[in-house]
Simulated assay, not measured.
Amino acid sequence: MSKVKYYYDSETGSYRKIERRKRRRVGIVLLSILGSFLAGFILLVIYLNIPQIETPQEKALKRELHNMELQYGLLNKKMDQIQNVLANVEDRDNNIYRVYFEANPIPEEQRKAGFGGINRYKDLEGFDNSKLIIQTSKRMDILSKQLVVQSKSLDEIAALAKEKESLLAAIPAIQPVKNENLNRIASGYGWRTDPFTKVRKFHKGMDFSAPRGTPVYATGDGRVARADNRSTGYGNHIRIEHDYGYTTLYGHLSKYNVRRGQRVKRGDIIGYVGSTGRSQGPHLHYEIFKDNKRINPINFYYGHLSPAEFDKVLEKAQQENQSLD
């Protein structure tokens, strides 16, 4: 119950009751509310414009955000280094490895192709650092794709290298008789005089005149397909099947040093010079087949002859003389 207040009226000499006006009361209330609102607004403006005032949680989030920006910056620098190294590998891949193995270079647009279709980075949009995060994510994806392309390319190069090594080992590349053991190159590939009929006949290989018992060497890696005397005219002979369509034949041997089905390496002794079969003296008759067609053996002596030695062999092989078989 509110207290009743009085005041002294001097004119009447009595106390009168103080009557409060309702309007004044409402004004005071409204003024109080307005004052409180203005004070709160002013404090809010001051709070929002003073950066030093931060809650502990805001400070922690700010530190975390700064650390994230720092880590993304370091990540981009590392990607720059990786891209430089990868660019060097790609250059060597296209201009050295693939050239050597006769493979087509990988186009630049295939190496650095982006990602089409839907927006892969939609979930990263709408944040304060979205641009930095999206840019880094794109670089990482493209770099990952480049690494995949390069990895597959190196796998292909490794396969080509292995095949090239196998090819080089299989190709007949040396003389079947060493120069120091030769009496002479009796006859080359081409038209020659038959020693028995004395008419011109196509000589299908090369004759190496050497003493009986001179070692005969395999001219490339392969498998002995035949080692017998059941082929007309060749006497004791050996046939070696090499990979990639090559076959070599060694005729008129005195004896064998290998058996059918045996694997041999270039330079292995497979037999010895003789004069068996259709022969006029101790010599080795040597033939090379490519895809079952005879070819000139003179083109396959690059394995251990110097240019001068090869020129001398070539000169003698081209002489149209009489063959020994």
Score class of each variant (00 low, 15 high):
E315W: 05
K178A: 07
R266W: 02
R259K: 15
D221P: 06
Q135I: 01
V177N: 02
N84T: 11
R230E: 05
Y234M: 02
A227E: 07
S187D: 05
L75Y: 12
Y6H: 15
V29Y: 09
T248Q: 02
S130G: 01
K145I: 02
T197V: 12
V273P: 09
W191M: 08
I106E: 04
I270K: 06
S254L: 00
I46V: 13
G188F: 03
M206Q: 05
I295Q: 02
P56W: 11
H203F: 15
D141A: 06
E156P: 10
N229E: 03
R192H: 10
L43Q: 15
D228Y: 03
L305R: 03
E309G: 08
N236L: 13
G205D: 06
E11G: 07
M140L: 13
G251S: 06
N88Q: 10
I238A: 00
R111K: 08
D228N: 13
E163C: 07
I157E: 10
V45E: 13
Y7L: 00
E11I: 04
S14I: 04
G233L: 13
K131V: 10
K3I: 05
H304N: 12
I269G: 01
Y272I: 03
S306D: 11
N94H: 12
F202H: 14
F208E: 01
K78M: 05
I46R: 11
S254F: 00
A103D: 07
V313Y: 15
Y15M: 07
S166H: 07
L124H: 00
D123W: 00
V273K: 04
T12E: 12
Y244T: 01
S279R: 10
K316T: 11
E54K: 15
I53V: 15
L44C: 09
Y72C: 01
Q319A: 12
H283I: 07
V216F: 08
V273L: 11
A170F: 03
Y7I: 00
A173R: 14
A308S: 15
E241N: 14
R25Y: 12
K3W: 02
P176G: 05
I82A: 15
S36K: 09
M1R: 14
A103E: 07
Q135A: 08
I46T: 11
K290I: 09
N67E: 05
L305F: 04
A186L: 03
R223M: 09
E241I: 10
P176M: 01
I157Q: 07
L124F: 00
I238N: 00
M206I: 10
Q150S: 07
Y256T: 01
H304C: 03
E58L: 01
L75N: 08
E163R: 12
F41T: 14
G117I: 03
R239Y: 09
D243K: 13
A170S: 13
